[in-house]
């Protein structure tokens, strides 16, 4: 699916650019975006290193296991493929909590740590497992309790009550999150997705070498 979307974005951009006479802007945007992508990725190094270090201590100290055991009942329902008490569950829980608290800087490294733990259970390394997709869905539609950025914009532009969108935001983001999780669990049953389920294709591990 990403192949199609990526292709469509590119082709539409160039065709529309040609018609609108914005091809120069399109070219500049391509070059600039590539540079921005590298800046963003490199900017993650410090914070990634810090949280991966801390998480390693949490892992060795057994805290991640304790967390994982604590939310076993919920986790078993949403992530049936993950073995009980696996560190992936503890890491995911920390990521989700960080998201809820609006701690974006901590949420991403914790989320990537969780993704890495999920990858250790995934037999086909270049293909997303069902658990990884559900976890991604939780993050692409994460519940936001305090959308700080937009509140700041509202305050700056003279809102009488910049915070009044908190409740509507919680409602909308909760709906989005529940839908995304449900969709991820339902769509995995579609023939196209079922056929490529890594857990059912354990024998085709030759792909692993490509990683």
């Amino acid at each position: 699916m990403l192949n199609y979307i990526w292709f469509a974005l590119m082709i539409i951009a160039i065709i529309v650019g040609a018609i609108n006479g914005t091809l120069t802007e399109v070219t500049n945007a391509a070059v600039d975006s590539a540079a921005v992508a590298v800046e963003i990725a490199l900017g993650l190094i410090g914070i990634m290193a810090m949280w991966l270090g801390i998480m390693k201590i949490a892992e060795k100290g057994g805290l991640i296991k304790i967390l994982a055991r604590g939310i076993r009942p919920v986790a078993r329902y949403i992530f049936p493929e993950i073995p009980d008490g696996h560190p992936a569950i503890g890491a995911m829980m920390m990521n989700i909590t960080a998201n809820w608290l609006g701690l974006g800087n901590a949420a991403t490294p914790l989320g990537l740590k969780a993704m890495d733990e999920l990858q250790s259970l995934n037999p086909v390394k270049d293909t997303a497992s069902n658990s990884q997709i559900t976890f991604l869905a939780i993050n692409t539609a994460s519940i936001t309790f305090i959308p700080m950025t937009v509140i700041a914009v509202r305050a700056e532009l003279g809102s009488a009550n910049p915070f009044e969108i908190i409740s509507t935001g919680i409602f909308a983001s909760t709906c989005a999150c529940i839908t995304a999780i449900t969709a991820s669990r339902l769509l995995q049953k579609l023939p196209g997705s079922h056929k490529t389920d890594p857990m059912l294709n354990q024998t085709t591990v030759k792909e692993e070498k490509n990683d």
């Binding site: 990884q132 579609l190 990683d211």
Partner: peptide
């Protein structure tokens, strides 16, 4: 971050 290229229904 984990080298996944095929996102399936993500």
């Amino acid at each position: 971050s984990v080298g996944i290229r095929r996102g399936r229904h993500a």
